[in-house]
Amino acid sequence: MKTLTTHIRVILALVLRESRVRHGRSKAGYTWAIVEPVLQITILTILFREFRGGSDGSGAEFALFFATGVLSFNMFRNTAAYIMNAFEANRALFNYPMVKPIDAVLARLVLDLATNILVMAIVLGFQITFMDVPPPEHVPLMALPLALLALMALGAGLSLAVIKRFLPSAQNLYHIIMGPAFFVSCIFFSLSSIPTQYRMILWWNPLVHGVEGFRVGYFADYSAPDINLLYLFTWVCCLNFFGFVGEWLTRFKTT
């Protein structure tokens, strides 16, 4: 019990600390963590709408469709990338006996989860208020795939952090994979809109299930019959198992 309260205390202290240093101590500080993705998503939305949505006259609807995709996708991509660097960024702190590497990882998960949810609320709130799009249909149903994506980010980020203990270039590998992943994770098209032979290939991408699952909760009558959250959950379990066990096994290998 005492160790649990210590962990919680340490994680909270780390969250406060990380929020101060994440954006290089500019005057605006943590505000940038919110403003940056909001601007990014806004610009991307405008761009994609010009390319695609402009012709069929459903610009606002496409903007919402795209926003739900990119917001849930970012929940995974940004959080995993942020967690991946938790060990190096906090190395000096591990000289305090109660600060464990896992605490640094969980602190980054908490902070990035909060950041992503805030960004989500701002982007979706803006569209609902000013672009006359429908509000979310079923919030708990949205929260489940989102939670799975966050947990998968934890597993993937931790696994990568462990691999990086031996192979620092694993970081580049992650970015190489996540580049194309943006185009095959159903961010600007739905799974049911693609031809069957490609659909079965995309189905294996776990992010598809998180992104499309999020939309099933958001839209009243969204058709996504192939979505399987259990498949996503399997990825969550495997990555977390690898990450936590790997961390435990390699804990004192690099000092």
Partner: peptide, 24 residues
Amino acid sequence: GFRGSFHRELSGVENVRFVARIYG
């Protein structure tokens, strides 16, 4: 005997607060 645990970008006060928090 090391100062490595202090975050270089944070002020002395902020670093002290961090230590105070982790030690309750």
